[in-house]
Amino acid sequence: MKNIKLILVFIFLCFLNINQSLANEKNLIFKITKNLRCLVCQGQSVHDSDSEFANSLKIVVQKKIDEGMSENEIYEFLKIKFGDWILYDPGLNKKTYILWLLPILLFLIGGAIIIKFFKINKIK
């Protein structure tokens, strides 16, 4: 038993070392373009798309990063140009309170129902 576990652990650590060098290379442009909707495609992100629009937008985002704009500034910039539709991450604002909070609310209600279930049980 113990041996098996040790072997498993060892194997996993080996796997991870192989990929270590690759892990650090994630960069900002991928993160940003993955969060942008390609407006001329059907449900694809700019990062994933190879359309003319997406390719140009990738260049623009890279340029803005080089100019020293932060991630949020770039989102703001694109939101003004193309509207909220371009962002895959709908931030928490007036339009999206229900979107973000309703699932959490339902979760709490679910919890309450389960607790109530036990209370009824106890009484009976």
Partner: peptide, 12 residues
């Protein structure tokens, strides 16, 4: 309801 278009994608 409000004619606003938003996207809800992976980050959400």
């Amino acid at each position: 309801i409000s004619s606003e278009k938003i996207s809800v994608g992976p980050p959400f």
